[in-house]
Amino acid sequence: MSLVQLKDISKHYQSGDEHVYALDGVTLTIKKGEFLSILGPSGSGKSTLMNVLGCLDKPTAGFYQLDDHDVSSFSSKELAAVRNSKIGFVFQSFNLLEYATALENVMLPLVYAGVNLRKRRAKAAELLERVGLGDRMSHKPNQLSGGQKQRVAIARALVNDPQIILADEPTGALDSKSGAEIEALFSELHHEGRTLIVVTHDISLARRTKRIINIKDGKVVDDEILEPSSTIYHRREGD
């Protein structure tokens, strides 16, 4: 059963006489429960693809179906609802609200979902426990390490039980130890049956995923299912 269906998605920028195709006819199907990584050189369009998948940006052309909805025709209000209920986004730079505590940050998506305070608090606390930050709930972001901040961000991405979790270089700003913890967390989430899409430069993170998509100049140049992960990956690298 396909959760995501992209058909001929393009994203086109024009600045002056210069034309940039950040995405150039991407067609892609992602099934429920997949753990997928997107690789590619800098400027190849990985973030653009993630932003389109996360409904943070609209493609200039193409068709995008998410969970049986044609989201490419959605209004900005409908897209907000999709982002709120179906998508959990994890950023490289965490993007937490600096003046709010860890708990409040995690609760925020539930505020927009209209969940009452008691349930919000319970759910957010549960997820902070889940990512191992049960003792850091009332800390503000500037009192947390990078790895802890990213775990708060992951808890926030999970709090609405999204259909799909998108992470754009989640370990990019972390040291290798914190990065490894985040990787482990993603693997756990995958084993729980969640759908995860990760953009990464980090080979060790990509190695944990079950499918690797390679992008170059806005086009999907390679799409490989890895089974079991590491061996096939190494073979591909040797190409």
């Binding site: 996360g54 900005s76 209000k77 907000a80 982002r83 993007n95 937490l96 927009y112 979902a113 926030r156």
Partner: peptide
């Protein structure tokens, strides 16, 4: 941007 990303409507 963050608020919009996590589901705040305009």
């Amino acid at each position: 941007g963050v608020r919009l990303a996590i589901g705040a409507s305009p």
